[in-house]
């Protein structure tokens, strides 16, 4: 029998290494490329200069935001796929992104930034997300029991309603607002305000930590709700807590970086193929790989047709989908022999 903790440690070290490599690559590449060897000195040194300020004020916050959002979305995906026992569920299925997008659209159309400044979009996005979270939650709460299919259906319906409302807003809004809405909807890690980046980092770390209180319960969920009950899992309490946890992680990510699709769907799947279905290793591995993946995608988005920047959501979709289809085909070939 192989040694489980040791294998797990191996995975964490490997994925951690990958994250570091992705991070350095993201710092080095861009319209002005900075040699890798100079990066540590520029980051930790005190000397002023163009390169140092590009690193510290543009690329580092962007890197950290990618880390936080990629990790948060992936953990949220693992949690939701685990509790729904449905591999197609992702953080955006539950209508949270729709709610956040609607909030942001209203903020843009209503010129909310006159009062709130740079916080207007994240704040209104988060408000929209929270509103949807509670709406979905209370609509599917019947007799104190969260019906898991009801939760899913309500979420999908709210997604549709909010995307229709967004289209309505777009149809009646002016051209300059339209550009803002579209740009935000495609997702971007361009938010470089340090305060917001720190909030994102803190929340995603806390989210990962909190998810570990439920790692055994998530494992038990894989046996089905009744079996989990037979094993002594308080599934009703768990479903509520996990739904809220995943939702807030998603809501925060969306409000800071727009709708970056596919990370929360593909990364958990891919990691499950790599490390197996045990949530004790799945959660942290997904966090690490999700963070690396988003950082790499963002780097690509910045350099492919530099100096013009592509929306990062486009890259995650194409790259993530492609890699995933390839992995799926391979794994089926291997297991289907």
């Amino acid at each position: 029998m192989q040694n489980k903790p040791l294998t797990w440690l191996g995975w964490v070290l490997f994925l951690g290494g990958l994250l570091f490599a992705a991070g350095f690559l993201a710092l080095a590449m861009g319209p002005a490329s900075i040699p890798l060897v100079k990066i540590p000195a520029l980051l930790w040194g005190k000397e002023p200069g163009i390169e140092a300020s590009i690193l510290r004020e543009v690329r580092l916050p962007r890197l950290l935001l990618g880390f936080a959002v990629g990790g948060a979305l992936s953990v949220s995906g693992v949690i939701l796929q685990g509790m729904f026992r449905n591999p197609l569920v992702e953080p955006y299925t539950l209508g949270i992104s729709g709610g956040a997008a609607l909030g942001v659209c209203l903020a843009i159309v209503g010129k909310l930034n006159r009062w709130l400044g740079i916080f207007s979009l994240p704040a209104s996005g988060f408000a929209g997300a929270v509103l949807v979270i509670f709406l979905v939650y209370f609509l599917s709460l019947r007799k104190g029991i969260v019906k898991i299919q009801g939760l899913l259906l309500t979420g999908v319906m709210i997604s549709f309603v909010s995307s229709s409302l967004i289209m309505l807003l777009m149809a009646i809004s002016r051209v300059e607002d339209l550009h803002g809405i579209i740009f935000w909807t495609l997702g971007s890690l361009g938010e470089t305000d340090w305060m917001l980046v720190k909030i994102a980092l803190l929340t995603s770390f806390l989210g990962l930590l909190a998810s570990y209180f439920f790692c055994f319960d998530l494992n038990a969920f894989s046996l089905g709700e009744e079996e989990a009950l037979h094993l002594g899992v308080n599934i009703e309490r768990d479903k509520r807590m996990l739904f809220l946890l995943a939702s807030f992680l998603t809501g925060l990510s969306v409000s800071l970086s727009g709708i970056i699709g596919f990370v929360g769907l593909v990364v958990p799947h891919f990691v499950r193929i790599l490390v197996g279905p045990d949530h004790r290793i799945l959660l942290v591995s997904s966090f690490l790989l999700g963070a690396s993946f988003l950082i790499l995608c963002d780097t690509l988005a910045r350099v492919v047709i530099a100096p013009v920047e592509l929306p990062v959501g486009v890259i995650t979709g194409i790259l993530g989908g492609g890699i995933f289809i390839y992995a799926l085909a391979r794994s089926e070939l291997i297991s289907g022999k």
Binding site: L223, H230, L231, G232, N234, G276
Partner: peptide, 28 residues
Amino acid sequence: MKFRELAQKVAVVSQNPALDLNLTVEDF
């Protein structure tokens, strides 16, 4: 009784539970 308390004393073999089929017997 808490579910956990009950599960420490009473075990159930269900008729045909929808299990995760990618588990090894030992992990299960």
